[in-house]
Amino acid sequence: MPHTIAVIAREVWDTRDLTGQILDEAGGLRPGALQTRFDPEDLNALELALRIKDAHGARVVAVGLGAPRQVEVLRECLYRGADAAVTATGDLAAADTAAHARRLAGAVRSLGRVDLLLVGTAVPDDDNSLLARHLAAELGWPAVSWVDAIEELAVDRVVARRAVEMGYEYVETPLPAVLAVGVALLEDDPRAPRPAKAMLKLKMKKAEIPTVPATDEPAPLTLRVRREAVPPRAIETATVDPENEAALRAMLDAALKGA
């Protein structure tokens, strides 16, 4: 029987190229100051799941949390080839990774047998901890972090390639397991996760995404959050024309002073 792979799909703040004030006076995020996007490492996790599906056959289910803000990450999963999607409810305001993990784990359990749970390793700006670890604790499953390839996949175990500081380790773990997917998943070319499939997008644009009601007690809050603005660290960027020898020389002189 092919594996069932659940993938966590988070909608996170898009914190690239932020301009202007993000916080209001009370330290809250100013509505409208930020856009959201599909968490890029979760997108890598989805890509890994879909590659397993391409190679071995698998059922891929995307699991999200809460109502979409701007990006319909779960439908985007369906457009790329996920077989189903569900969303967990609740605890969003709590902004504690542990609380999110409890709701997501409940949704994963509701799917029946799941062999692999994939999620991006990165901790988004607004999260405090590694979601994968908290999911593993909630589910009582083993977990491997910083996975960027699957070496071997059998009915009841997986060998994952884990990126560490000075190279790679190949870790075998029984299934079901949580794999936290890192950044270096992608091969040289294509360099980006797959885009949507047009026919699927046409078919799935109105797909109902079932909501999994919360059955567990919410996790008790372990922390509270306060935000404060950081004064901008202005980098004066000077553009240097590579054809201009005098400019290059001036740059080297200035940069090497004191180095």
Binding site: A98, S129, R133, A137, S145, A163, L223
Partner: peptide
Amino acid sequence: ATTIGNDLGAALAAALGAACVTD
């Protein structure tokens, strides 16, 4: 905050019910 420290720290927090801040 290494690959080991972040993994172990989060696992520890989950096991203890502690607050966790990585990186």
